[in-house]
């Protein structure tokens, strides 16, 4: 039992941190520009494919550095030449723009790399067993993913809370006009934030690619969960996104580990009340739980766990 709890926690935290790498950028972009970026998970996918392409030419480590930077540049360009032009037509236009962008990116990936999963491999330098506990082994690569995610989180916090750039970003989040009056170039700040957000998602893609599966549907598989994270955490709240990411990661992993059903909980009467539903185990509905949380949060606390803005 201890073994199950321990490994479920590890797996859950890892998944949560991956979610956070993407959700952090998404929630920053949202709070700054008021745009829900539907194409955010696509940057994660581009990151994975760039990482794959670079790693098979010059190795994993150059890809680990270069791919997120490239994705960041792509993100910044999209903001500068796409989103900014659409901006003057209002939020609906922006929303539709990012929505369309997600499809365009998926089709481009299909065209360049095909519909089959690509063979993005764990680098040999990280392909060993990190530790063995209760005769279960834990791969070093997963520890590396965890370490990268934590390092990135620390970096983000320091930049936002301890530097001048962070100060301007925070000010632009709530009072963009005042920041512009004070002589700062707010559109450039927006572009930078969008680029950094994209780069973070790209980094998540680079490290998740070899462990999960690098395929054209990876963005569509993860995208909806991201929105759950930022809504549950509270739109625009970085701390909220962090808490919600971990929460969803852990809930999903632990739900898989639990076999209980309604019948186990309240006895055979569950079958007469819920019919076949009474026999469905928690493990079976694990993928559904984040969406259930989304609905509950929207009903009972529309601002999210840590947010102060109505969804």
């Amino acid at each position: 039992m201890l073994q199950l709890i321990l490994f479920s926690t590890l797996n859950g935290v890892l998944y949560g941190m991956l979610l956070f790498m993407m959700a952090s950028g998404l929630t920053l972009i949202f709070s700054m520009m008021g745009v829900l970026n539907f194409a955010h998970a696509s940057f994660y996918m581009i990151g994975a494919y760039f990482g794959f392409e670079i790693s098979r030419r010059i190795g994993f480590w150059p890809g680990f550095i270069i791919a997120p930077l490239l994705v960041g540049v792509v993100g910044a360009l999209i903001e500068r030449y796409g989103l900014r032009r659409v901006h003057k037509f209002g939020h609906v236009a922006e929303l539709l723009f990012t929505f369309g962008l997600a499809f365009v990116i998926e089709e481009l990936v299909n065209m360049f790399w095909g519909k089959l999963p690509v063979d993005y491999q764990v680098p040999p330098s990280l392909d060993f067993v990190a530790f063995t506990l209760f005769d279960t082994t834990y791969p070093a690569y997963r520890m590396f993913m965890l370490a990268t995610a934590i390092a990135m989180f620390a970096f983000l916090i320091i930049v936002l809370k301890r530097t001048r750039v962070g100060l301007i970003i925070q000010a632009a989040l709530t009072h963009p006009n005042m920041v512009a009056m004070l002589g700062h170039d707010v559109p450039t700040v927006f572009m930078m934030v969008f680029g950094v957000g994209a780069a973070l998602a790209g980094l998540a893609g680079v490290i998740a690619g070899p462990a999960l599966v690098t395929q054209p549907s990876m963005a569509a598989l993860l995208g909806p969960i991201l929105f759950v994270v930022i809504v549950v955490g509270g739109l625009g709240s970085l701390g909220g996104a962090f808490a919600a990411s971990l929460l969803i990661g852990l809930v999903q992993t632990f739900a898989v580990a639990i076999n209980g059903s309604l019948v186990d909980l309240i006895g055979p009467t569950a079958n007469t009340i819920f019919g076949e539903l009474g026999n469905v185990t928690l493990a079976q509905i694990a993928p559904l739980l984040p969406y259930l949380m989304l609905v509950l949060v929207l009903i009972f606390k529309p601002t999210g766990l840590f947010g102060n803005r109505e969804t």
Binding site: L4, A211, V256
Partner: peptide
Amino acid sequence: VGDELHPLLKITDFAPYIAKIKA
């Protein structure tokens, strides 16, 4: 000792399921 049903072709990481089988 265990009887599991998981979503079809949606899971990219089976680590949680393997942890359960192990336990």
